[in-house]
Amino acid sequence: MADRAAGSVSEALAARAQRIARDVHAEISAHIPTYGRVPRADVEASVVQIVDDVEAVLRAGAVPPPASIAQAEESSRARAKQGVPIHDIMHAFRFSMGAIRDAVSAIAAETALDAAETVRLLTLMWSYSDAYTVKVVAVYRQSDIESALEQARRTQQFLLGLLDGTLEGGDLTAAASALLLDPASSYRAVRARPARGEVGPLLLELQRQGARHEGVSVFAAIGAQCVGVVAFRPEAVGDDGVVALGPAVGVTELAVSFRSAHAVLAAATTLGLSGVHDLADLSWRAAAANADEVTALLRERYLAPLADQGEFGQLVLEAVAVYLAEDRSVPRAARAVPVHVNTLRYRLRRFEELTGCRLDSTDTIVEVSFALGVAARVV
């Protein structure tokens, strides 16, 4: 008897599927804005399929396991690709189940179905609803993972193409657009390297910084470096890591920015610098880092004479480096070392005696700074 009653309700429910689909679409359109991206035919087809599933559940008297509810997987994947968030998908599903519940209740009343059987059928419906929800959540979680992996793959391919110069023209513009980079905005290339350890923490911190700033930023770990494109100037990461920046350019000129960032990173690494640097920050120091023969000549001229002086030679060299870093202010340099001003003057005088140069000569100032690599760094 119960089977015949369930069969009658199922048949009547199936006959109302199209009307239920139209009503549900109207409710979704009125209350869930993100479904404006979904064609009406798609929404109504999904609702009809849900009605068919419920009709089969009522007829069979049993709910299938979540994994076998194909409609939940198909529609969830489709909505995810259309940019509908999971909470809106579930909201729409509740509209569907509400409309189906109302239809089943109306059919039960029209056919004078007894209360116990009505409750049984409605219970089956809500059990199906629970199984459907489990499937949707699983599918959406997997879809998120797949989307993240695909985004990471696209990002890495984009950055690799810029690094090796194989991405250009229309392909570059298309790849940048796929990553939501604005062709009308300016971006800076980033090449960063941790002083020690894995590149992962550096990548994570730069991604966090990007999330705090307006505009799109993309990063990827490539080899021992973190490579990226940003619309802001990153902050220093850790005490010893170095972040090298290229100039701000349009999307089509990003390869140029990457070449500059590469030169900055190489120079900063050679000079033993940490923190955030671009070419303007390093200025002539970038040339010093890449002029081995000139640097060797000048170090022989200005630094080698101090090597025979042992520890005192290092103290003299420190005094010169700090003196230059403090714009040749003896009082400031003495405080920075720290020593008495007369001690600093003595060490500077000994430097002049040992090297045969004068620290009031422009050539000497330039050459000694070049030899040191960076004026404030003791070599």
Rank of each mutant, 00 (worst) to 15 (best):
A116R: 11
A184M: 11
D102H: 15
R79W: 05
P338L: 11
T269D: 06
A78H: 07
A178W: 09
E11H: 12
A26E: 06
S217D: 04
R191G: 05
A334F: 08
I365H: 12
D239Y: 08
H277W: 08
A255I: 03
P201K: 00
W284K: 13
A371T: 10
S10H: 09
E55R: 05
L172H: 00
P66S: 07
A280H: 12
A333Y: 05
L303S: 07
G275C: 02
P194F: 10
V316F: 05
F158W: 06
Q151S: 12
D281Y: 03
A109E: 10
R22V: 15
L172C: 07
A109L: 10
A21S: 09
Y128D: 07
S68D: 10
H262A: 02
Y302W: 09
L265F: 08
V256E: 15
V374Q: 13
R188H: 15
V368Y: 00
A5R: 14
V316R: 06
P331F: 06
R77K: 10
A26L: 10
V320F: 08
G313Y: 06
A221C: 00
M97C: 05
V139D: 00
P183A: 05
R191T: 03
L315E: 15
D42S: 01
A5W: 12
E168P: 00
D102C: 13
C357V: 12
S68I: 09
T343W: 04
R358Q: 08
H340M: 05
A263L: 09
L203G: 04
E73W: 13
V374G: 10
V341W: 14
A221M: 04
V264Y: 01
A376G: 11
R285P: 02
N342I: 03
Q82R: 06
A261N: 05
R59M: 13
L298S: 02
A80N: 07
V242W: 02
A92Q: 04
D240N: 05
V139P: 02
A41V: 04
Q142N: 14
Q151A: 14
V47F: 02
G228L: 07
F95E: 07
E73D: 14
E73P: 09
P33R: 03
Y302P: 05
A287G: 11
A14P: 01
L122G: 14
L344H: 02
C226K: 03
R299E: 11
R37Q: 10
A195I: 12
N290H: 14
E11N: 10
A103S: 05
H25S: 12
